[in-house]
């Protein structure tokens, strides 16, 4: 790989009979992992809804503390990144590593933009004493005491989502290196597809987080 030569997979690993079998197994593995991601975030969503039913006023106040314009901007950014990622999968399935490379670059750029916006949001909240812990919390900043609970959910859920974006950036870097080496072909594109699935799940979670946090 490091020689810059094309090093494409044409043979399946020793325990598979065919490339198709290996591909399908890999894809199913990624899907199962996505199921675990949904279960993990799902538990948080369940907690969110339970407390929202209990403390509706706090949730309304909490939502008004967040800037929905930044949230909406980030939503569009993530949707764009999902689009380019889907297109990168299409490209690599057609064996066009160059086009796929360009699309993954755009996806990665979107991921960075998302994280930069999040950084400004977080630092603003911490500055105003709205981080619910570490002694930062300022009880005077809110009217309903349980708004602290809302901010907890905000930081835990978007924080965990942000960690997934960062992991995604790492996966993109790995993909970019392999795309540059021209490793994928019509017969072998499992990694591109797998990272794509991961990225879309991250997007789906944000699709729910946006209205639940910013538009309450």
């Amino acid at each position: 790989m490091s020689t810059g030569k094309v090093d494409r997979r044409v043979e399946p690993s020793h325990h598979f009979d065919s490339m198709i079998q290996e591909h399908e197994a890999g894809k199913q593995g990624v899907w199962l992992f996505m199921a675990t991601e949904l279960m993990m975030f799902g538990a948080l969503f369940a907690g969110y809804f339970i407390y929202r039913m209990k403390y509706y006023d706090a949730w309304v106040e909490g939502g008004s503390l967040l800037d929905w314009k930044l949230g909406a901007f980030n939503t569009i950014v993530l949707l764009l990144s999902s689009f380019t990622m889907a297109q990168a999968v299409t490209d690599s399935m057609q064996g066009n590593n160059k086009k796929a490379f360009r699309n993954v670059v755009i996806t990665t750029a979107c991921a960075f933009i998302f994280m930069i916006v999040k950084y400004f949001e977080y630092s603003g909240k911490i500055h105003h004493g709205l981080f619910p812990g570490l002694g930062v919390w300022n009880p005077e900043a809110v009217e309903v005491a349980e708004t602290k609970l809302f901010m907890t959910f905000y930081f835990v859920m978007t924080g965990l989502h942000g960690i997934h974006i960062l992991i995604g950036i790492g996966l993109m870097a790995w993909l970019l290196k392999r795309l540059k080496n021209d490793e994928f072909s019509k017969d072998y594109y499992t990694s591109v597809e797998g990272v794509g699935l991961y990225w879309h799940i991250v997007d789906i979670i944000w699709i729910f987080l946006f209205p639940l946090m910013y538009l309450i």
Binding site: P132, G133, L134, K148, L149, T152, F155, V156
Partner: peptide, 8 residues
């Protein structure tokens, strides 16, 4: 909860 004291 233990590190930040978030309170869920």
């Amino acid at each position: 909860e233990r590190i930040f004291g978030v309170g869920i």
